[in-house]
């Protein structure tokens, strides 16, 4: 019962954070000096604007109404998925973002899963063989690589595999106008994904690996590991079921914290590889000063980070009974 209450409690926390973000998004343009329309749409958009359009927009945002009506208009807009109109793309912001979102999801999602799972497995093996050659090699190699910024690793990979060796595409997410379908289409996607994904994973891997390894080293000294070995548990069972599972806990927490970093990383990587995801879109929007689009993307990223953190919280609860039963 207390467990349910605490889940509800943390969900409420996330909801509060979400409300705070939406409120800021609503309040900030209206608190800026001058015309709120200019704050919402930017200078360039206003130049191209006809009086009819301006009147339509004022009516849409209820800018001639008291602020309570403006808030109502804003919230009902949000519920309809209306994030505004992008003048640069001449389309609804939500539609523009939705077009780029799958690519980013594929890139960051698979980077997150790969970096975390690979880091955990390598960390556990390395921590279990502390001081061995595998351990020392991995520490040196991974710390060296994770010291570079993601875009730098991306550029290096692009130069080696794309330019010199020519085995990887130089840009994009699919071969344009190839018209492939089915398995060939899927392979094409993976082919384009390989380099950006590899650079993201390589840089992210170090942190996960190091944390898992060090936690593993500490956990292996705990008494319950001896208890498990005394039961006759096999090495594998000791490593994964007992020591490993306990080493996971701080790694899961750190994953939540690492998410925004991964997303910014993806932004640069998308630019390096001209990968048509949200990152590249944001870059374009920034160049064009497409305010509604910028705002829409930032809102989406914030919501994504919050959702992912919430997911991590729930996962942690599953893994650690001490948190599950805590009041």
């Amino acid at each position: 019962m207390s467990a349910k209450r605490s889940v509800r409690g943390s969900l409420a926390n996330y909801l509060l954070a979400l409300i705070a973000i939406f409120s800021l998004n609503f309040v900030l343009p209206r608190m800026m000096p001058g015309d709120p329309l200019q704050a919402i749409y930017g200078q360039e958009a206003l130049v191209a604007m006809t009086p009819q359009m301006e009147a339509a927009l004022i009516q849409k945002f209820s800018l001639d109404q008291p602020w309570s009506s403006q808030l109502y208009a804003y919230i009902s807009g949000l519920f309809e998925g209306d994030l505004g109109y992008s003048y640069y793309f001449r389309d609804q912001v939500s539609a523009v973002i939705l077009g780029a979102l799958p690519w980013t999801l594929i890139l960051t999602g698979s980077a997150l899963i790969l970096a975390t799972s690979l880091g955990i497995v390598l960390g556990m093996e390395s921590g279990y063989r502390r001081g061995g050659s595998l351990d020392r090699g991995l520490i040196a190699g991974l710390i060296f690589i994770s010291g570079f910024p993601d875009f730098f690793v991306g550029i290096v990979l692009l130069l080696i595999f794309g330019v010199s060796l020519g085995i990887a595409p130089l840009y994009g997410s699919i071969t344009p106008y190839s018209g492939e379908t089915g398995l060939a289409y899927l392979l094409d996607i993976l082919h384009h994904l390989a380099l950006p994904l590899a650079s993201l994973v390589l840089v992210q891997l170090g942190a996960v690996y190091l944390l898992t390894r060090n936690t593993m080293v500490v956990v292996l000294k705990e008494r319950f590991v001896l208890t498990a070995r005394a039961k006759g548990c096999t090495d594998r069972a000791v490593r994964y079921r007992h020591a490993g599972r306990n080493s996971l806990l701080p790694v899961i927490t750190a994953t939540g914290i690492r998410l925004p970093q991964l997303i910014t990383g993806a932004l640069f990587i998308e630019i390096v590889f001209s990968y048509p995801g949200v990152g590249l879109l944001l870059s374009t929007a920034l160049d064009a000063r497409d305010y509604p689009l910028i705002q829409g993307i930032l809102l989406l990223v914030t919501v994504a980070v919050l959702t992912a953190n919430c997911g991590v919280d729930l996962l942690y609860r599953r893994l650690d009974p001490r948190v599950r039963h805590a009041r």
Binding site: R223, F224, L226, T227, A228, A230, G232, N246, D320
Partner: peptide
């Protein structure tokens, strides 16, 4: 654990917490 088994002292972390 099958032929030779040991009862450990009940220190704080003698059992796997998870």
């Amino acid at each position: 654990g099958k032929v030779v088994a040991m009862v450990f002292q009940n220190v704080e972390d003698a059992l796997n917490p998870v």
